[in-house]
Design a protein around this nucleic acid. Structure first.
Length: 497
RNA sequence: GUCCCCUUCGUCUAGUGGUCAGGACACCGCCCUUUCACGGCGGCGACACGGGUUCGAACCCCGUAGGGGACGCCA
């Protein structure tokens, strides 16, 4: 009862789309919050005036929403700790900076970009290293400062970093991490344009928003000692830190566009369903432990998630495994869920059910689609294949596997068989009512017996003639779902074409 | 160049001193199916290397190699 509530945050900068790395970070924060009955905060870090865009904010929000990562506080969900855009929190950064000034922890730096570059060059030419800043303005006299101010030179504020000692923390993921203060330079906290830098704003906001755990990418490790120093200068207790391993491409280089899809919205466009994306991302750098199915619902993930099981080594993104997880989710879906996914894809193409097809039991589009999806069974494993799997049930100009057509349809014998089958069905099926699979099967087998050929000699040509493909669901079920009139017409057309 | 981290099958991983080093993806084979998937069964395949410590090391220590990350008035 006395323990404080977990508050975590995802803090993207709106400079692009939501990529898988960000999505994974967001997901781990979200899973931890939901597992701990904590609060998940979304904070937009738009302190870079040049690069931040509103379009990017939209893309990030859309990506998170698609994944189902709902935030308790953030854009569109004001809470007591808002606003949640850093650009709207500037007074707070100024006040906090004033505290630091009063305590002598920061100093004004009048160096321009050009100054710094010139001194870096000089240092390097002389064989001395350059670690980012040389402390040029650290000990300016009051007179020098006054002179610069009179000139109206813009100034940034830098943190006065201790020259010795160590800064360390116990990282949730890797354990103790330690940096020599000597390798840390006096970093800018407040830019000359009056905006805070990332490290300063993050500390101020994490503290102000009561964040208890900072879970972020491993690329932030080297920011942590600096942030810890800021907490110390302010006299604030730091949160706990956990750094998630990076996500690499299949070649173990940092995952990038050249490896394939990286934006969450691209995966959506490729037919990945959100629960599969979430499932796969959760498996990257985290595992549920020994045994147990890796295919997990979001609820199961929430229940099982633990920071203790987060890995410390970078993981390569495996598109094949994502596809597999996706197909598993698809296959395990109930009829209603399947229909919800399929209907829009059909509507897009104008594929609608027609009662004249005489399909038993199909009353309308939804009913027909349900029947087709059930027929697909385990073949319902990719949204991308769906149009191809369903097209021939709706239109006559369905795609046709030419090689298969040549082999199974376009020979004299096969054409003769198809013609005979068409005729047999026209005669053998009840004319006025929908026929079921068994009725088609009976006709096919009788005809094969009469002709003295194996049933397969009729089945294979029929499959290609009806669907254009060499693979499909059971042929008699396909016939049933196509309806007598269309089956007969297609067979006859194939026989004559 | 400086600093930090990581290292179990090709990939994701289980494993915390005694295991035939387990599972999943991918790949291969068989079964099921007069098709194709699904499914079932089986196979291939790893403790980066070298030293220690220990009766015993994937697990502990040191070193080497490889990989990743960070070195901005970007976040």
């Amino acid at each position: 009862m006395s323990q404080t509530q977990v508050r975590v945050r995802f803090a993207p900068s709106p400079t692009g789309y939501l990529h898988v790395g960000g999505a994974r970070t967001a997901l781990f924060n979200w899973l931890f919050a939901r597992n701990q009955q904590g609060v998940f905060v979304l904070r937009i870090e738009d302190t870079d005036q040049e690069r931040s865009t509103e379009a990017s904010v939209g893309a990030i929000l859309r990506g998170l929403s698609w994944l189902g990562l709902d935030w308790d506080e953030g854009p569109g969900k004001d809470g007591p700790w808002g606003p949640y855009f850093q650009s709207e929190r500037r007074p707070l950064y100024r006040e906090t900076l004033a505290q630091l000034r009063a305590a002598g922890h920061v100093y004004r730096c009048f160096c321009t970009d050009a100054d710094l570059q010139r001194r870096e060059q000089t240092a390097r030419d002389a064989g001395r290293g350059w670690d980012g800043y040389d402390g040029h303005c650290r000990d300016l006299t009051a007179a020098q400062v006054a002179a610069y101010e009179t000139d109206g030179r813009p100034a940034a504020w830098r943190l006065r970093t201790p020259a010795d000692g160590v800064t360390f923390w116990y990282d949730i993921v890797v354990g103790k991490r330690e940096f020599q203060n000597a390798v840390l330079t006096d970093r800018v906290l407040m830019k000359a344009d009056g905006f805070p830098t990332y490290n300063f704003a993050a500390v101020v906001d994490d503290h102000a928003m009561g964040i208890t755990h900072v879970l972020r990418g491993d690329d932030h490790v080297s920011n942590t000692p600096l942030q810890l120093l800021i907490y110390a200068a302010l006299g604030w207790p730091p949160p706990k830190f956990g750094h998630m391993p990076m996500i690499l491409g299949p070649d173990r280089k940092r995952l990038s566009k050249r490896h394939g899809a990286v934006a969450v919205e691209e995966f959506q466009a490729q037919g990945i369903v959100p629960q599969a994306m979430v499932n796969y991302l959760a498996l990257l750098g985290w595992s549920i432990g020994a045994g147990g199915d890796e295919v997990l619902s979001v609820d199961a993930l929430i229940k099982r998630f633990s920071l203790k099981k987060v890995n410390s080594s970078p993981a390569a993104f495996d598109y094949d495994k994502l596809e597999h997880i996706n197909s598993q989710h698809l296959k395990r879906m109930g009829p209603a869920e399947r229909r919800t996914l399929a209907l829009p894809l059909l509507a897009e193409r104008g594929w609608v059910y027609d009662p004249a097809w005489m399909v038993p039991g199909a009353a309308d589009q939804a009913g027909y689609v349900d029947r087709l999806l059930a027929l697909l069974g385990g073949r319902f494993s990719s949204l991308r294949l769906l149009p191809e799997q369903l097209g021939f049930f709706f239109v006559e100009d369905f795609p046709r596997d030419e090689a298969a057509w040549q082999e199974h349809v376009a020979t004299a014998t096969n054409r003769a068989h198809l013609a005979a089958l068409g005729a047999a069905l026209a005669q053998g099926l009840p004319a006025a009512e929908p026929a079921v699979a068994a009725a088609y099967e009976a006709v096919v087998r009788d005809l094969a017996a009469g002709l003295g050929v194996p049933a397969g000699d009729l089945i294979h040509p029929a499959r290609v003639a009806l669907s254009g493909q060499v693979r499909s669901a059971g042929i008699f079920e396909v016939m049933e779902a196509l309806g007598g009139p269309r089956v007969i017409a297609r067979l006859q057309r194939a026989a004559g074409a």
